[in-house]
Write a protein that binds this DNA or RNA. Sequence first.
DNA 1: CCCTTATTGATAATGGTTCTCATTATCAAT
DNA 2: ATTGATAATGAGAACCATTATCAATAAGGG
Lengths: 155, 155
Amino acid sequence: MGRCRGNAWWQGRFRGCGYRVTAGREIILDALTKTDKHLSAEDIYLSVKKACPGIGLATVYRTLEILVEMGLVLKFDFGDGRARYELAESPDKRANHHHHLICTSCKRVIDYTDFIEDEVELLRKTEKGLSAKYNFDIKNHVIQFYGICEKCRRK
Amino acid sequence: MGRCRGNAWWQGRFRGCGYRVTAGREIILDALTKTDKHLSAEDIYLSVKKACPGIGLATVYRTLEILVEMGLVLKFDFGDGRARYELAESPDKRANHHHHLICTSCKRVIDYTDFIEDEVELLRKTEKGLSAKYNFDIKNHVIQFYGICEKCRRK
DNA sequence: CCCTTATTGATAATGGTTCTCATTATCAAT
DNA sequence: ATTGATAATGAGAACCATTATCAATAAGGG
């Protein structure tokens, strides 16, 4: 995995948190970096298995847990019984801030970035107010709209 | 259950959707009406069992599924492995619109209503825009802030 | 190179949720 | 009030995403 120059920044963060840098962790983070889809743990497992056949599903779960805890990855629930993971914003990958539009009928998810500027502005204010009032250290937020998508509406 | 005069409105909605009104459904909706907590299916099961000992857990799940689908109840995931349910706004119970502040460490949830006016205003606009652009029929939304609560920070 | 210890893979266990099916209850039509 | 079609129920098994276990392995400081 010598080709991963751009990964130095998170390797430092890993070691800074007392975690070791392993091939499995590198390749899992790689898989998340190379997609804009909402992958489940199993999606990631299958994807990673191609380059690293020996990897186990438990390692994927364990790594994801760490990544979420470190704030590198966001974990979502779209209501289909399994968690989904997405790379959070990073030095490598900026301006990907978005929210989700979820069809409760077919579970399809649309990422939208429209109106994000206004939302972000309001959320910043809200976050600040809430942090102060409740003494909460806010790390991130989730906004999701639920409804019925175009296809499902036509039925 | 003759005392439940105020429930006439949802009984009509039930039948309008082709569902039958049963004692179990009444008492489950009752339990949700009488609390402002975030109950899990099992919480509701145990609570309802007191007044209706014969009720089964599966019935609770089935009823909740219907209530969520009808939009009477909202289903949340706070990251502790079980779904939580809350009565949505209703003719009986207005002005309870709120969002959640979730501690990722101890899973404590704080309801907040601060800044709700601004949020609601922005969301209304966003919702409108998204509906038009993606041809989505938006039913509701979720806003959640994740972070570390006061108690957990002190450790 | 060694030693401590975190990490791993395989697999069993867990636990929330859903499914199955025979029985019961609802309610529109009679 | 009675009936009949069928939706709803309770008990428990099944399902399946996620976690825990544990012996073997690998990371990385010394």
